[in-house]
Simulated assay, not measured.
Amino acid sequence: MPSISRSVEVLVVDDQILIRAGLVALLRAAPGISVVGEAADGSEAVAVAAATRPQVVLMDIRMPGIGGIAATREIIAAAGDDPPRVLVLTTFDIDEYVYEALRAGASGFLLKDTPPQRLLAAVTTAAGGDMLFTPSVVHRLIEAFAGRAASRPDGLPALNVLTGREREVLRLVGMGLANSDIADRLVIAESTVKTHLNRVMAKLDLTSRAQAVVLAYESGLVQPGAGVPALSGQPGRER
């Protein structure tokens, strides 16, 4: 018998009932997507996420009580090794709330005026594990706020747990390169890039590629305004 693909299961979180109802109706009408729950605030979102285990959470940032950033952090922490992909909903793309949500583990963000088809595509993209914004957007966002990292009381993971190659992969991820571009630049196989990045994520307790980009800036591994480095040689391809 042919295998039946699983629908992308989505939790919708927004304190404005009309926006939430519109998102739920749009998602339910789309093939391949199912809405497993909805919530009006962060505390309800945490409870519903624990009960339904969605693949993707559409999360409003600014809500009364527990906001979207704290809820994102709690949902991801409670999910263990298989956290949902959280997409934050925002009015402005260059927004400190969005930056903090990415630090908390969100996989990407959507503007609230995103066209319906693009929103549906974003949900599917997130479920597949990919980032949802262009490097230019995330770099503008991170460069606007990463300089504040030095004053953070929680500190940053120590990069000395990484090998030299893992640090280089993290640096290039932070600069916005895709895995295929990193493979070409380091003259290694793309599968090897994925292996290095997975090890980086595990060692530094990161849950999304977006978090890796933020950390690369906050740790100083990537400097604001830095360009992509030129190819430095052609050693044998690593497998």
Rank of each mutant, 00 (worst) to 15 (best):
P2R: 08
P2T: 11
P2Q: 03
V8W: 01
V10I: 03
D15N: 13
A21F: 08
A30V: 04
V35C: 09
G37V: 01
E44A: 15
A45Q: 04
A51T: 04
Q55P: 05
V57S: 02
L58D: 01
D60S: 10
D60T: 10
D60F: 00
I61V: 14
M63F: 07
P64K: 05
P64V: 08
G65R: 09
G67L: 01
G68M: 01
I76N: 05
A78C: 06
G80K: 09
P83K: 07
V86I: 15
V86K: 06
V88H: 03
T90V: 10
T91D: 11
E96I: 13
Y99A: 03
A101Q: 06
R103K: 15
G105R: 05
G108M: 05
D113P: 03
D113H: 13
P116D: 14
A122D: 03
G128Y: 05
D130M: 09
S136Q: 14
E143A: 12
F145K: 06
R148Q: 14
A150L: 11
P153H: 06
G155F: 07
G155Q: 10
L156D: 05
A158T: 10
L159F: 07
L162I: 11
R165T: 12
E166S: 08
E168I: 01
V169P: 00
S180T: 12
D184V: 09
V187G: 05
V193A: 02
K194N: 13
H196S: 05
L197K: 11
V200I: 07
Q211E: 12
A212D: 01
L215C: 08
L215F: 08
A216N: 10
A216F: 08
E218V: 07
V222A: 08
G227H: 09
A230C: 05
R239K: 10
